[in-house]
Each structure stands twice: as C-alpha cells, then as structure tokens.
Design a protein around this nucleic acid. Structure first.
Lengths: 228, 228
DNA sequence: GTTGACATCGAACACTTGTTCGTGTAAGAT
DNA sequence: ATCTTACACGAACAAGTGTTCGATGTCAAC
C-alpha cells in the first residue's frame, strides 16, 4: 500500500494530535477529541479524513471500538523525538537485591510483581552486558575484601546467575552457611573436599567451606561506581 | 502514596492484561474487555478492583472517558521487558572519546546527531547520573595512576564537562600542555601559581603545571568496569 | 454546462463503555 | 452475636463514542 506523498494540512494535524495524545494519555483520542483539537466541527469530517489516512497506511482502526485508532509504526517513527529511540542498545533494569554480607541466601526469584523503589534497581545498557542477560541482578558491596581487584565499599556489582559451576578464579557472590553472602574469587580444593573463597585484600584470610555449604549465586559481569 | 505489598491474583491479572493490551493495541482496554480477559463476569467487580489499583498507585483513571485507564510509569516498568520502552530512566549514549593520555585536547562537541559505532559510545542509565547531563562523555583509562581510588587500567570513566573550576581534590580529566590528557585529583597551589595533578597511586609523582597550561575537561561522575 | 472526485457539515442514530445500585458471602475484630 | 471491611455479582442507567445519512460546496476535466 503506497503512501500519499503529501497529506493535507488537516491530515498532518490529525496525525500529530493522535501521536501527542497517545504519548501523554496512554490511549488514543476519540473522534470528537480529534475534531476539537483540529477545529473540525463535524465528526463525519474527522471520520472521512481518518478513512483516508487508513487508505494511505498511516493508521489502522478497529470498527465500532471506542478510541480504536492506532498509528502504524512508520507513522510513529515520523514523530518520535530523535533520542533514546534511535539507539541500538536497550536499557536493562537490574534489580538491586541488597548488600553483600547478608545473613541468608539472597532471594533471586523471577518475581514479576515485586515493586522496586528507584533505589532498588540499576539501569545498565544492554551492550555493556554479555549476550544472555536473563538472570542478572546487582548487589552493593559492603566491605573491603576485594580491594585488590579495585572493588571498593559501596560499589555496585552486576552479576549473572550461573547454572554451571564457574571456573576457578572467577569472582562470584556466594552464600556460605554460617557466613552469609560474600564476594570473593572461588577456588575448588578437591583433595580437601572444600571450597576456598579468596579475598583480594591481602590483609584478609580466605573462607574455607564444605562444598555443600556453598551456593554460588552469580558471577560478576560489571562493576559500577558513582563518584559524584 | 504507599503501594500495597501484595495484590490479589485478580488484580495482578488485571494489570498484566492492561499492559499487554496497551502494548498490542496502542490503547487501553475497556472495563468489559478486562472482565472477559480476567473472567470477571460483572463490570462493577472490575470497577471495584480498578478503584483499588488506583488507590495503591498502580494506575490512574479518567472519569467518564472510554478506555480512560493508564498504568503509572512504575507499573509499566514492572512489566516491561527490560527495554528502552520501560521509561523509568532513559538511556544516554555517552560518547567514548578516546583514551586518557592523548596528545591533544579531546574535542568535546555537542553533536546531537552524530552516530557512534558501538565501540565509540557507552550506554548509561540517566538515573545513574546527576541532573544536568548535557555535557557528558566517557574516557577509557589507560594506566594505573588512580589505582589508589580503585580505578584500574581499562576502566571507563564517565565525566561531566565543567564550566566552573572544580573543588580541590576533585577527580578530573585534565589536559596538560606537553603531557596530554590525564586523570588525576586536582589541587591548586596559588602561592606557586601552579596546579598539582595528584595520582592516587603512591608509586607515582604528581604533575605540576602552570595554571594557563591546564585545561580541565571534565569531572568524574561514574566508573564502569567490565569483568566478563 | 455537466460530471465526478474530493471535502465539508449538522444531525440522528446505534453501539460501546463507565458508573451506580442493591444484594450477598466470608473473614476478622470487638 | 454483631459490626466492619473486603470482595463478589447482575442489572439498569447515564454518558461517551463511532457510523451513517442527506445536503452542500469546490475544482478540474471533458
């Protein structure tokens, strides 16, 4: 369906109004609202112009449905401000689930309906993350155990839930029975049947725990620090 | 307006339906459509639940307006696949202008429409930044001069162009004649009529330069590090 | 001068849609 | 036992909204 090269002044005004109304109200305007906004006194004239715009491919309508007008994607693109919309990447909202060093395993559930305050999530651009980002979350660092890796108290780490046991040396958030959740590099010591959780702060001792007393909750993908 | 911690099953279903309907139809559903979708046989029960959801802050309604239901931003964010469309925050594309330690002042132009390759820009959520974000850019750190501040080689710093001279002790990117662009904490030494650019790596010496030979290009807002 | 396409308009009507009313059940508090 | 609140429901009504009709005007082509 080819588009008309030029629309009438009224038709342009109608499209712009629909776009702006939708942006502000989350819904489409009624025939009468369009008429008021574009100074068309008769609903049948609005209807006639809408019919034309449908023919030209600028919008679609649902019969006998209140506010059943929807701009096509191409029409929306005509009006969208050249901002976020123009970007390749997408913004991921990463739940900030708490601080490291907590008393029990952090609940990482796919909880569709849990509400986060603004302080409870971190925006991260998708292209700063690796491909599979289904299971990511953030934790705020509480302590200095990883300063050798340039991770400071108060920093935010973005983690990916891991299914497979991570390689030795991977920086992870791990829950340890009796210790809580800790940020360390993980090493297996099979001969002793234990896990070593190694801080990178030379003044701190590693944590040793039986394998069954450790739950790896995620591996570190990114570190974020706000300085201002 | 405080939000209820948990909604009823029906209320969750209503919210989800409204979100999905809006996404697919560009408009909001009617009371009757909500009822059909959530198997509520009476419009007054739907109306009752919508009233509750308004009270809890999940949506707003327009009186006596067909399809006059709009999810609040926070509610939309709950359902949005973590995408740009979920507008709590917007994604800022911060130009990655180069590496610190370059031969001449970095050109920071307000170029709204310039397209950057993926390697040339960094996505940052707006709510991770302070209010005025007109003039921000990113630089990749090359070197170890700021390891005392937990900034490592290869890290990315997000900076804000500063008009006013920053306070002593502020971490800045500064261009120094004969030295290039460097990341340091800046101090003025008025008696000697010079600027001291202080690394936080104890093994490194500060840079001293005449005031007129130093251009502060930005102050550090954020540090980002990719580990995976 | 006639014809057809396009555009406009008010009014009426059909249908969609939101609100209110009266009633009922269940659970918890007093 | 009583009261309050939450939740449910069908029906009726009020208001919003889309569609159609008949009339009118403009303009270009023939």
């Amino acid at each position: 369906m080819s588009k008309k090269k030029s629309l009438s002044k009224r038709q342009n005004a109608i499209l712009r109004f629909i776009y702006e109304y939708n942006d502000e109200n989350g819904s489409s305007p009624s025939i009468r609202e369009i008429g008021i906004a574009t100074k068309i006194s008769s609903t049948s004239v609005v209807n006639y112009n809408l019919k034309r715009l449908v023919e030209y491919g600028y919008l679609v309508r649902k019969k006998m449905v209140a506010r059943g007008i929807q701009l096509t994607d191409r029409t929306q693109a005509m009006f969208a401000p050249k901002r976020v919309d123009a970007f390749i990447s997408t913004l991921f909202r990463v739940p900030l689930l708490g601080n490291i060093v907590a008393g029990e395993p952090i609940s990482i559930t796919d909880n569709d309906f849990q509400t986060y305050d603004e302080d409870d999530s971190i925006g991260v651009a998708a292209d700063m993350l690796p491909k599979r980002t289904d299971d990511i979350f953030a934790l705020k660092v509480d302590g200095y155990s990883m300063v050798g890796d340039m991770i400071n108290d108060g920093d935010i780490v973005i983690l990916e839930k891991t299914e497979q046991p991570p390689d030795d040396g991977t920086m992870v958030a791990a829950w340890v029975e009796g210790e809580g959740t800790t940020l360390k590099r993980i090493y297996r010591e099979p001969k002793q049947n234990r896990i070593r959780l190694q801080p990178s702060n030379p003044t701190m001792e590693p944590i040793y725990a039986a394998v069954e007393n450790v739950q790896v909750q995620g591996r570190v993908l990114m570190v974020l620090r706000q300085t201002a």
